[in-house]
Design a protein around this nucleic acid. Structure first.
Lengths: 337, 337
DNA sequence: AATCAATATGTAACCGGTACCACATGACAG
DNA sequence: CTGTCATGTGGTACCGGTTACATATTGATT
């Protein structure tokens, strides 16, 4: 591989001039420019990114730290992040944290040593002190689904509370009268907010009782178990709103095993809008987050932050949308109202 | 951040000694070692990975080039690759090629400039000349699902042909007598081999006809369309073997829309063993590839190759396993025989 | 006593860029 | 005629490591 000095020699100028030409920093005469162009062509020269990284402390690399890429929520997000990143000339390092603080921290150590330009956190263990420390050390950070922090860190999230209300309203409008909720682990702010939204929407209704709320684990298995427990406790429910799609899939499975008709006897609604919801039988009604958009946005914000064109850190709350499908389609409902 | 020279100064030795100590290359006296340890501790020194990369042309970074991380086959693979990589101290760069040669090539250019240590290809457009060129330039490459090449490149694949036969045999043993096959795009060697395996397994049967083979696109939509066409052409089929799970899901959807019972009237079998197969209704019988193991293996091979401990390039053909589920469960079948 | 290998450490070039600073030239204002 | 500014270019220190080579000490071998 040719180096900048080879090019300089061949073009008959100094390395400084080549560097100026490459980075469009400083003056370069048009004729000189031509000579340089030719030399670069002739030598098939490509600037070395590592050397650039060392000299400039900028590597055009960002990291995406998420709990687990095999969780169906994240591939689409990762895809969006990578699409935007590559559009802006950045490369993406993928890190699976399993939501374990230790792993996160150790990734951060490695990434710092690699002069990573910035980090996207879609993982949940980091607290705001950690984040602040990062930004203080000059590493831009943007977070997903986190509570809006005071300090320097943008956050992208979606309207979980509103989404939950949307779900409840939809179920009510479909004629459901006893709507249960399977909530996710309360360490996750998303789970907390969805639960809050549910409670807010149902607490004034006459049938309301805390026993309609039951804990799940945001996974299929947890959805199954929670549904079993729930149906035992409340054989009278006619709708289940699960805190995420995976648990809703579990609910569907459990109800099917019990011989309960969906949506005939019990309507089911999920949350997230992952692809799986379109392949269940019946297809799953869900409160869809704009997953791709979230990834694209978070990634654009990070890059802006890296390049210093971000005015101020902000929290972006994206709209969610109810996607009505078979699993809540009840003839006795009336979608108006 | 402290540098190696700071440490050297504080420990009262030269940078060379520090470097030797850090890399366990060359001699370092035990007492000196202690002094260095203390100095490193005191300064909270961490070697700079970029500088190391520049000096040693080794970055402890590998790239994973795949068509699309949001295709359900790849997240598990990516997870495995990242798990193994991080276990060995490597970091993974994720690249989505969309199976477009141009994107692949442009990623490769970027990655070379970044002194990436090696590449895993799970994408399909690169031909063996490209691969050879890579290895010639000193970049280790390992491929997934590719035809075994003569030259220096290990390949991990699974027994597609055998898997297809397994599927057909299973369907026959379940009492099916007219088994159709929806095959994937023939640019993909996997699709080709599965088709070949199917043909081999059924061509001697009396009902055999090429009209039982129909093209899909390896996606849900293609599975739906192919199934519609097929059922119109052959209302008499009692089993459909789809070339991958996504198409099988499409088949399930299409049959459900037509009111065809699965497995009662038509049994359905997929290929790949992605998570989705467990959440369809009925659950999908599939020929499962050991996806995680493939990722782990390919990643281990690459790292061995990078570290020079790989004896010779090889092709690894992994076993597939038929996972019988509801979608092929026919009472009139006899799983023995 | 001379020779040699093993141990231990330092010097400095090198990896391939960036960027600060100095310097040169020509035009134009005062 | 001098000062200033825009344009254009080169020299070189620096980023933070690695490593080839030189040098020194020590103990064992012959």
């Amino acid at each position: 591989m040719a180096t900048i000095r080879d090019v300089a020699k061949l073009a008959g100028v100094s390395v400084a001039t080549i560097s100026r030409y490459l980075n469009k920093s400083g003056y370069v005469n048009v004729e000189t420019e031509q000579k340089i162009k030719k030399a670069i062509e002739a030598l098939n020269y490509e600037p070395n990114a590592v050397a650039r990284g060392l000299a400039g402390k900028k590597t055009n690399t960002i990291a995406l730290i998420l709990p687990d890429i095999s969780n169906p929520f994240f591939p689409e997000l990762a895809r969006a992040v990578e699409d935007v990143a590559s559009m802006y000339g950045y490369t993406v390092i993928l890190c699976n944290s399993d939501d374990e603080g230790v792993k996160e921290k150790s990734y951060i150590e490695v990434l710092k040593k690699k002069y990573i330009d910035g980090i996207i956190f879609a993982s949940n263990t980091l607290d705001s002190a950690d984040v602040e420390q990062m930004t203080k050390k000059g590493i831009p950070v943007v977070c997903l689904d986190r509570v809006p922090p005071k300090q320097s860190c943008s956050v992208v999230r979606s309207k979980n509370r509103e989404g939950a209300k949307l779900a409840v309203e939809h179920l009510l409008s479909m004629g459901c009268r006893k709507i249960a909720h399977i909530y996710g682990p309360q360490e996750f702010i998303t789970a907390k907010e969805r639960l809050a939204g549910y409670e807010e929407a149902v607490m004034h209704l006459d049938w309301y009782s805390p026993t309609f709320m039951i804990q799940g684990d945001f996974r299929i298995e947890g959805g199954i178990r929670a549904t079993e427990l729930l149906m035992e406790r409340h054989p009278d429910v006619d709708a289940i709103f699960a805190g995420n799609d995976l648990m809703a899939v579990g609910t569907l499975k459990a109800l099917h095993r019990m011989g309960v008709q969906v949506p005939g006897q019990v309507a089911v609604c999920g949350f997230d809008g992952i692809g799986m919801t379109e392949i269940t039988q019946p297809e799953l009604t869900t409160v869809a987050q704009p997953i791709y958009e979230m990834g694209a946005l978070v990634s654009r914000i990070l890059i802006k932050k890296i390049e210093g064109t971000l005015e101020a850190d902000q929290t972006y709350e994206l709209d969610v949308a109810l996607v009505p499908r078979e699993s809540t389609l009840r003839r006795n409902g009336h979608e108006s109202s």
